[in-house]
């Protein structure tokens, strides 16, 4: 397989208003690569929700997007508190986000379910006190 195109981003955990900048950048880059608009939307929404989660819960982290010949992989890595119960976190409507985040339009318990909804596969590896790694794949 030809080598993947990789985009790497550092997600700033201190500034909620700038969250999503990496996703906007990914959207532009994928457009330049000639990826279809529907696929771009799926990738960028999944990554955007992930970015927001990293800012709300984990104090930021790193996001990598790898474009292969037949799929796009999104890796989100943080060193936050970890997810105690992944099954529970995956339920629509379950949220541990603080009230101030809800007043900003997030924290409705839709982030992880949306990430799963828009991708073909999603794996969550998480350890309490160490962090979380989420790997998502969107087929081309």
């Amino acid at each position: 397989m030809t080598e993947a195109v990789r985009f790497h981003f550092s997600v700033d955990g201190d500034d909620f208003s700038s969250a999503g900048q990496a996703s906007v950048q990914v959207k532009k880059s994928l457009r330049q690569l000639g990826i279809s608009p529907e696929t771009i939307r799926r990738v960028s929404v999944a990554m955007y929700e992930g970015e927001i989660n990293m800012v709300i819960h984990a104090g930021g982290g790193y996001a990598d997007v790898l474009v292969f010949e037949d799929h796009i992989e999104i890796q989100l890595v943080d060193q936050g508190p970890g997810i105690a119960d992944i099954e529970l976190a995956m339920q629509e409507g379950f949220s541990t986000a603080p009230d101030n985040i809800r007043s900003l339009g997030f924290g409705a318990g839709m982030g992880l379910p949306n990430m799963k909804r828009y991708t073909d596969s999603m794996e969550i590896e998480s350890k309490l006190g160490e962090g979380t790694k989420i790997t998502m794949r969107v087929n081309l």
């Binding site: 208003s17 700038s18 996703s23 906007v24 960028s44 927001i52 900003l104 339009g105 997030f106």
Partner: peptide, 13 residues
């Protein structure tokens, strides 16, 4: 709702 994430959300969609 008024904050930058409103515009980013709309842009994503």
């Amino acid at each position: 709702l008024v904050n930058p994430q409103v515009v980013r959300t709309a842009e994503m969609m």
